[in-house]
Write a protein that binds this DNA or RNA. Sequence first.
DNA 1: GCACCTAGGTTCGGTCACTGAACCAATCTC
DNA 2: GAGATTGGTTCAGTGACCGAACCTAGGTGC
Lengths: 185, 185
Amino acid sequence: MVTVDVMALGKDYATQECSIARALEIVGERWTLLVIRDALYGVRRYNDFLVHLGIPRAVLAARLQSLTAEGILEKRRYQESPPRDEYVITERGIALWPALRSLGRWGREHYNETQLRYFRHVTCGTELGPYGECPACATVVPVEDVLMEPGPGLDPNPADPVSRALLAPRRLLQPLEPPVESGQV
Amino acid sequence: MVTVDVMALGKDYATQECSIARALEIVGERWTLLVIRDALYGVRRYNDFLVHLGIPRAVLAARLQSLTAEGILEKRRYQESPPRDEYVITERGIALWPALRSLGRWGREHYNETQLRYFRHVTCGTELGPYGECPACATVVPVEDVLMEPGPGLDPNPADPVSRALLAPRRLLQPLEPPVESGQV
DNA sequence: GCACCTAGGTTCGGTCACTGAACCAATCTC
DNA sequence: GAGATTGGTTCAGTGACCGAACCTAGGTGC
């Protein structure tokens, strides 16, 4: 058994009365927002997070545990033999998409010359605005209707299989390894 | 002289091709986003950041220096005798407002029962939507037209003078210590 | 002209989180 | 039975963060 002292906030912002500070106490540690980003991209398994992020194993285990405890990820058994669990993003985690989108926009506009990925409204193909809305449809696009496509700045031949799988156009939240279709031969 | 190794990214995310990761390399360290938040609130001076954040002095100095180097804050002399500098947020820093707003919304919706602050469109009084837009005017509100007001969840009698000054309704970016009016007696 | 205060730092020893590598365990495949 | 796969845990080393003390340069009071 592991003591759970870790998630009892070794890094709070005690004096702050502020929702931003509150949010950062939950998701402000190193790697945490990238884990959530990957979860939005459809990554669900320990090993996939590991190879895609290049994160130390112990840190990943700690993050998955605390995010699960916070209700941002949900640990779910996807096969019994051998027993295997996956970490699926919850509504609470999905609600972080606009913040991640804004951060990514800011990063690209101020530090990346070339576009790495496009995010489009799947029903009309329009690229999303700064906050994840569709300018053409004038609505906030539900995360599952966001289509992610590689841009010109993205390495077309990455080393790890997860990056490779993420090169294909795909919807957010779509699991990386699709469950085996029962009717399929 | 201080060696500037610190800001040469002791904490990058080397393997990541991602604008979010890029952004987090700049603003993802502990305290950094709260410094930027305070700068948006109008805090400009070393000492004001210090008492309002409760941040260790050395860390604050490091953050101010790296944020200045990144062009997010600008160090500016505001009096000559004795020589004093203030740190003013730049356009690049102001561009982080939507991301901070999203984070704050998420924090409040998922972890705060009562509202701590209201952010309103100053011209019409409508509370801002999730991304800093005005639902009534259907426009993105420029940061300088955002009015910040205390909500019911905020301690009405905080200890430090900066929190106290921030209790009054005020626009974002409005400096905490207004420069002395020349015509004033 | 000396003591004290303010603003804006730097220095330093201790602690805690992160890092990388090694190790472990259960199940499946050959 | 050997090796691979998945999902971890353990451990020693390092680096970031912490709080407290100290420093400096220019006011201010008397």
